[in-house]
Design a protein around this nucleic acid. Structure first.
Lengths: 228, 228
DNA sequence: CCTTAATAGTGTCACTAGGACACTATATTC
DNA sequence: GAATATAGTGTCCTAGTGACACTATTAAGG
């Protein structure tokens, strides 16, 4: 209750974390250990702990770490989902986050009965997810595709050093269509965000140059289209 | 308290509503009638009423109507601001909305001691606003400028029918710099969102064509840069 | 009237980003 | 040392847009 005497809605945080493995897009889900939606798969999230979480971003990070053992390479606010009907416990407000990470196998048992696992994005329609999590994932996926077109965000799905070929694969997986290698190289050049390393990487043919992020670069502020 | 036994943070909604009058950008502020920040100017907002508000968007609309008498022509989620220190009443989470409206004078007295008024954006630095509202407004302004570059959102600052000259003025006011009339006309053409009306409008010289939004068009989904 | 000023709208050139795609380069494998 | 596979370049074409001079249409005032 607030000082006004109103009942406050439940406030929660949910995370849509994407990764790419073997040219497939995956989403991280956890099996719910408690009601409601007991034993259903759902997005990792939960309530803010005002003693532990500096802000909602810290809460999102903590929940991911706690429930999946992973720490995202990139995290941003997606959108707030709200209403009386999305949670059987009552009127609820959930801030969804959108996260990226290089693919890492999850140790499916963290500390309790709860279970975490990567699910191929294109198989999610076959699952019954908790709450409105299907909708949240759909929104997150749309945002991911948008940002793959006009930003360098997809590099967060790769290790610190990566090749143009790897980045091309990641972007193509996200967009679901081929892009021009040449265009991608022009973008890498134009962005001025990356430097060549001394090393090269074998890949079955000519060895590829390894790129890495320049120190102190804000990768979120780059524009220009690709394959629109 | 949740069933987990945690204390829930306070959840509120804040609105940054912009309008343009006489080639100046204005933000709508209200004078706080209660503590904290009693008598300080602040963004119109407040707590969700789970009995009245279908979702957070409905809450934002209701608060605007209630506190200022106005209904925005455009409303979208901006960002969540959160932390232990932004509200003296305790850990708080506020979802900020970003709203546009054709300029309308506000009847400064609504129903009580509270007072609403348009403030020129470029004078806000001289005011001491409640909470972190300066920051929220700064973020909203950045978003407004971004969207003015690559979308048609600024039309929501104009009446249902408008001329190219008016739209040019609105965009220039938002961006704080001149744009090419020709480029704007190309955009209007390319967007395929508007139709010419039969009417023309006097403006001291040749009469201008009046445009209006095509019915059923989703104005939020248009791209292309302008004056970047 | 006819001229001037003011605003509306067009024609067109140049520049740039990006798609398409053929070309060269360098590695592995047999 | 040829075949093959992947990496990287050269270059043409098109579309979007800034720049800016041009034409068009109105009101106001001699």
């Amino acid at each position: 209750m607030t000082e006004q005497g109103f009942i406050q809605p439940l406030f929660t945080v949910d995370n849509v974390m994407f990764a790419i493995n073997n040219a497939r897009l995956y989403v991280l889900l956890v099996k719910r250990a408690i009601a409601p939606y007991h034993n259903n798969w759902s997005l990792p999230g939960g309530f803010v702990d005002i003693a532990l979480d500096k802000d909602v971003e810290a809460c999102a990070m903590r929940k991911l770490k706690q429930k999946t053992g992973l720490t995202p390479a990139y995290l941003e606010q997606l959108e707030v989902f709200s209403g009386a009907d999305r949670d059987p416990r009552g009127y609820s407000v959930s801030l969804a986050f959108f996260a990226l990470l290089p693919y890492t196998p999850v140790s499916s048992q963290i500390n309790s009965v709860s279970q975490a696992s990567w699910w191929p994005f294109d198989q999610l329609t076959q699952l019954t997810l908790a709450f409105d999590h299907q909708l949240i994932i759909a929104q997150a996926h749309q945002r991911l595709q948008q940002k793959a077109l006009y930003s360098m965000l997809p590099v967060f799905c790769l290790p610190a050093t990566f090749t143009v070929g790897q980045l091309k694969m990641v972007i193509e997986t996200i967009l679901g269509k081929e892009i021009q290698r040449k265009s991608l190289m022009r973008r890498i050049e134009a962005s001025d965000m990356f430097t060549l390393t001394e090393q090269k990487q074998v890949s079955g043919g000519r060895q590829a140059q390894l790129y890495q992020l320049k120190p102190g670069v804000d990768i979120t502020h780059f524009s220009r289209n690709m394959g629109a």
